[in-house]
C-alpha cells in the first residue's frame, strides 16, 4: 500500500477511544438539541408558520456559521494533543515516515472529520424532524436538498480554517491558544461576514459566505478563496511545521 495511505490509516486508527471521535458525534448533536428545544419551547409555532424549510435553515446556519469553526478548532487541537500528550511527535519522527506526509495526513483527517460531523448533522436533522412529526408537529415538505448540497462548498471554503487550526495546534502544545483563536475569530466573522468589502480578508467568514449569502458570484468567490488560501496555507504549514526541531 502507498506510504501516505498507510500513514492516513494509522492516523484514523489512533482515533479509537479518542475525544476527537466523541466530539465529532457530540457537537452536531448539541446543535440539533438546541433546535429541538427552540421548537418545543415555542409549541411548534415556528414550524407551523415557516415549515421544515426554516428548521433546516436554522440548523444549517447555526452549524456552519457558529459551531463548525469552533468544532474545527476543537478537533485540530484534539488530533494534535494525541501527539503532544504522549511524546508522539518524537515517536513519529524516529519512524521511517515523512513529517510533511504526517502534517498532510493530520490536516486531511481533520478535514474528513469536519465532513463526517456535517453529514452526521444532516442525519440528525432528519431524525429530529421524524421525532417532531411523531410529537405532532407539522410543517410541509420534509426534505430540502438545497441545504444538503451546501456541504461540498463548505468543505472547500473551510479549508483555510482547518489548516490554520492544525498549524496553531501543531506548534503549540496547549489546546487553549487554538480554541481562543477559534472562538474569537468566529465571533469576529459574524460581523465581518456582513461587510461586502472586508469579508474576504477573514477566512473564518468563508463558510458563512459560501452558504448564507444570496449572490451566486459572492458564494463562488468564497469557495474559490477557500481553495486558494487553504492551498497556500497548507504549503506554508508543510514548510514551516515540519522544519522545527522536536524537543518534546
Amino acid at each position: 500500500m502507498n506510504k501516505f495511505l498507510i500513514l492516513f490509516c494509522v492516523e484514523i486508527a489512533k482515533l479509537k477511544r479518542s475525544q476527537a471521535l466523541v466530539m465529532t458525534l457530540l457537537c452536531p448533536f448539541a446543535v440539533i438539541l438546541l433546535q429541538l428545544l427552540v421548537v418545543i419551547e415555542g409549541n411548534g409555532d415556528f414550524i407551523a408558520k415557516r415549515g421544515w424549510n426554516m428548521y433546516w435553515m436554522s440548523v444549517v446556519s447555526l452549524w456552519y456559521s457558529f459551531m463548525l469553526p469552533l468544532y474545527i478548532a476543537l478537533i485540530t487541537g484534539l488530533l494534535t494533543s494525541l501527539e503532544h500528550k504522549n511524546h508522539g511527535w518524537r515517536l513519529m519522527a524516529t519512524l521511517p515516515i515523512s513529517r510533511v506526509q504526517l502534517y498532510i495526513a493530520k490536516t486531511l483527517l481533520a478535514w474528513a472529520l469536519m465532513a463526517i460531523g456535517s453529514l452526521w448533522l444532516y442525519l440528525l436533522t432528519g431524525l429530529s424532524i421524524g421525532l417532531l412529526l411523531l410529537l405532532g408537529y407539522q410543517g410541509g415538505d420534509i426534505l430540502h436538498w438545497s441545504f444538503v448540497s451546501q456541504l461540498c462548498p463548505v468543505l472547500v471554503a473551510a479549508l483555510p480554517i482547518v489548516v490554520i487550526g492544525m498549524t496553531v495546534s501543531w506548534l503549540i502544545p496547549s489546546m487553549v491558544p487554538a480554541l481562543v483563536l477559534g472562538v474569537s475569530m468566529t465571533m469576529a466573522a459574524m460581523s465581518v461576514s456582513r461587510s461586502p468589502d472586508y469579508w474576504m480578508f477573514d477566512p473564518w467568514t468563508y463558510p458563512m459566505v459560501a452558504t448564507m449569502v444570496q449572490g451566486v458570484a459572492v458564494r463562488e468567490l468564497a469557495i474559490a478563496l477557500g481553495a486558494v488560501v487553504g492551498g497556500i496555507l497548507l504549503l506554508a504549514g508543510c514548510w514551516y511545521c515540519t522544519r522545527r526541531p522536536i524537543h518534546s
Binding site: 486508527a13 489512533k14 479509537k16 500528550k85 518524537r90
Partner: peptide, 24 residues
C-alpha cells in the same frame, strides 16, 4: 528516548499494530 512515547488510549497490541504498519 528518555520517557516512553506511547498512545495511552490504545492497548499494547493496538499500539504495536500501528508501529508495524509504519515500519512496514
Amino acid at each position: 528516548i528518555d520517557s516512553a512515547c506511547l498512545y495511552e488510549h490504545l492497548t499494547a497490541v493496538e499500539f504495536l499494530r500501528l508501529m508495524v504498519k509504519l515500519k512496514d
